[in-house]
Amino acid sequence: MAKEIRTEHFPLILHKTHSLRLRSKLEGPAWEDCQYVYNMLKQSPLGHAISKHVTIYPELLQEFWWNEETVYSGTNMWIQSQVMGFTIILNEETLRDALRLGDDPDTTFFPREILEETLKDIGYRTPNVLRQISMSGFIQPFQYLVTQLSVCFSKKIGHFIELSYKMMEVVHVVVQEKPYNFSKFLMRNLKSNMHTRQPF
């Protein structure tokens, strides 16, 4: 028997298209200050992933998440689902190919000390935060950078007032031009959302 699809489980149901793209049509002095950050993002390994316009079909998205099954084989993990009778497999490799991510499979973690050095480098004003990093602590260009990355890649839904140290890894990678396994980062977030039924 097919499972009932309950729309309250899927906050993206009202999104006709992928609206989390990199914003580029901004005006005024603030945008002039952000221009070099925008160019930095476009030239980073995330350039394609955050600028590609994607049409979302809510019914297919619902079906994918409702039928999903997490599969483990050794240290590997992937998500398998049935959509319109087709088997869909989502893993690091498919994410890497679809989003054209420039991954380094061996780099998945940065110590907090290194991330706090990057915070200082980009002028973060209140670095003595134990768990979360306040968006208001960034100067305008990097506030734009952090907001764009959070909207595109964070698993949060709603306002982005704080930044976790895990999301700060992505900021660090873009700013310092360091290698990183973005696909593993995304799969890790997908896995953490399995039980909440929130599509990430």
Rank of each mutant, 00 (worst) to 15 (best):
T108E: 02
T108K: 00
F109T: 09
F109G: 07
F109E: 11
F109H: 15
F110H: 00
F110G: 02
F110N: 01
F110P: 00
F110L: 01
F110K: 03
P111L: 01
P111R: 04
P111Q: 05
P111I: 04
P111G: 05
R112T: 13
R112C: 07
R112A: 15
R112G: 07
R112I: 08
E113S: 15
E113L: 12
E113Q: 12
E113N: 10
I114F: 11
I114Y: 07
I114A: 14
L115K: 12
L115P: 10
L115D: 05
E116W: 06
E116Q: 14
E116F: 04
E117Q: 04
E117K: 02
E117R: 01
T118G: 10
T118E: 06
T118Y: 03
T118K: 01
T118L: 05
T118A: 12
T118M: 11
L119F: 04
L119Y: 05
L119N: 10
K120W: 12
K120A: 13
K120Q: 15
D121G: 14
D121V: 10
D121L: 12
I122W: 00
I122K: 03
I122C: 08
I122R: 03
I122V: 15
G123N: 00
G123R: 00
Y124M: 07
Y124W: 03
Y124V: 09
Y124E: 07
Y124D: 09
Y124L: 06
Y124P: 00
R125G: 13
R125C: 10
R125Q: 14
R125N: 13
R125Y: 09
T126Q: 15
T126A: 14
T126W: 15
T126V: 14
P127F: 05
P127Q: 06
P127W: 03
N128P: 08
N128K: 15
V129H: 13
V129T: 10
V129K: 14
V129A: 12
L130T: 11
L130G: 06
R131M: 07
R131H: 15
Q132F: 12
Q132S: 13
Q132G: 09
Q132P: 03
I133N: 01
I133H: 01
I133E: 01
I133C: 07
I133A: 06
I133L: 14
S134H: 15
S134P: 01
S134I: 10
S134K: 15
S134N: 11
S134W: 11
M135A: 03
M135C: 03
M135P: 00
M135N: 03
S136Y: 11
S136W: 11
S136A: 13
S136E: 11
G137M: 03
G137S: 03
G137R: 07
G137Q: 05
F138V: 02
F138E: 04
F138R: 06
I139K: 11
I139G: 01
